[in-house]
Nucleic acid binder design. Structure first.
Lengths: 247, 247
DNA sequence: CAGTGGTCTAGACCACTTC
DNA sequence: AAGTGGTCTAGACCACTGG
């Protein structure tokens, strides 16, 4: 049994989480079997019950465990564990998880005033401009999505300087190095047909239906840091989401 | 200032959550303003700091508050507060939130063996059957989606008896009364064109693109309790999701 | 420096499940 | 009755932010 290191700068509850996660993923704890009770974990790892409960509560939130009052704490089904619940994964990460190699082409990077929709979503004043990036995103070099990203220039100026980097990898990773931390996103999703330009770039016929996505991304204070419009042909890509029920 | 009732069977942390929620929604606490510090809440409500922290931690999870180490705890933007983050809302609830009147027509309710996909998703043995419900869902009497629901007969037998009720309202509410509690759902979303039958029932042309959704719903132990396939014409309905970033 | 949230302890009593 | 998780207390020390 691994031990927790008090000299380790990582908090004890966090170390305990990692230990339990690893035991679950390694298969030492099978689905629907009980993990040690809270008093047992207290004794095994020499920490207080509050510390144990902080670790367990977070693992329940992440969909790895479930609790039953009076019975115990149990390991969730692997299918539900597979990803952090209700996460907002970047497409780049998502493709890697599926064993694909993400990539992209940057067509246009410019400073513009932006449409009324864009300005409203990013809550800009009349004087402020937006960075506009037009990208074709690929998996294993095959196009899978056409995407236009809008960033508020006042906060994202340096992203504009480094626009080329966003073509290859994740825009989020570039934004993160600039202190723009995506935390929460609103999405609107509907089925649609591609525009002429989209059909051409994605090399699909104009009759191929796809998914039209508009997203506004916020940092943890709720300030908008990105607005995106994208088209995903149904024949090339599907979205996967795991959500938790309210209440 | 409201007080917490120790005679109230509801836990103190829960009562404190409700008080803070109400103050936020009533506008007494504006976005980006700090709420009272943890020691202040301890003094005001005569509870321990652990109780205060349990209330605040859950409100942070629900997207109403955000914390900044060394600075304080602040109220989130209304747009981010609008709904519980990453919830799995039933279409019935969603439509009500948008001011629409949800309804539906039940075409078929039957017991079948189910396709291989259905049987795999519901993890059924060779002998077990599924309840199959075919529904046209409406908002203000106009069709917005065509949906087929599959339920594992061994656990959902009584839902089959009460199938007619599911036409009018939410299938989840009928399931809930039978001890089937949706907790987590996996979704797959892509753009597609309607089948001939879908176009006819939804009264749209076969060239109208829409969103094709396949969902498997689990209870909190991770056992599947429902599998659904649906088509939402892009011209009639869009999905709205609010998600939290992983980590 | 004072004030904030982050982590942690060592208890306590309760409600629920199982036997 | 014994064991489980749910709630709660009254402290403590730390890391981070701001003036």
């Amino acid at each position: 049994m691994p031990t927790l290191e008090r000299s380790n700068p990582l908090p004890l509850y966090y170390q305990l989480k990692e230990v339990l996660k690893q035991q679950i993923h390694a298969g030492h704890l099978a689905p629907h079997t009980a993990i040690p009770s809270e008093p047992e974990l207290v004794a095994q790892y020499h920490v207080s019950r509050a510390t144990v409960r902080q670790a367990l509560t977070e693992l329940v939130h992440e969909g790895l465990l479930y609790r039953q009052h009076g019975r115990g704490t149990f390991v969730c089904e692997p299918r539900v564990q597979q990803r952090t619940l209700s996460e907002l994964t970047s497409l780049t990460d998502e493709l890697r998880q599926r064993g694909k190699r993400p990539g992209g082409l940057l067509f246009i990077s410019e400073l513009v005033r932006g449409s009324q929709t864009v300005r409203e979503q990013l809550r800009l004043t009349d004087e402020e401009q937006v960075v506009r990036l037009e990208r074709l995103r690929t998996a294993d070099d095959a196009p899978i999505a056409y995407e236009i990203d809008y960033l508020p220039y006042p906060r994202a100026g340096s992203v504009y300087q480094r626009a080329q980097e966003t073509a290859e990898g994740s825009l989020y990773s570039v934004m993160a190095t600039e202190g723009l931390s995506p935390s929460i996103a609103e999405h609107s999703l509907k089925g649609d047909l591609p525009s002429a330009r989209e059909a051409e770039l994605l090399r699909i016929s104009p009759e191929t239906a796809g998914l039209r996505l508009a997203s506004t991304v916020f940092d943890d204070t709720g300030s908008p840091i990105e607005y995106t419009e994208a088209f995903y042909p149904g024949s090339l890509y599907d979205f996967r989401l795991t959500l938790r029920m309210a209440r």
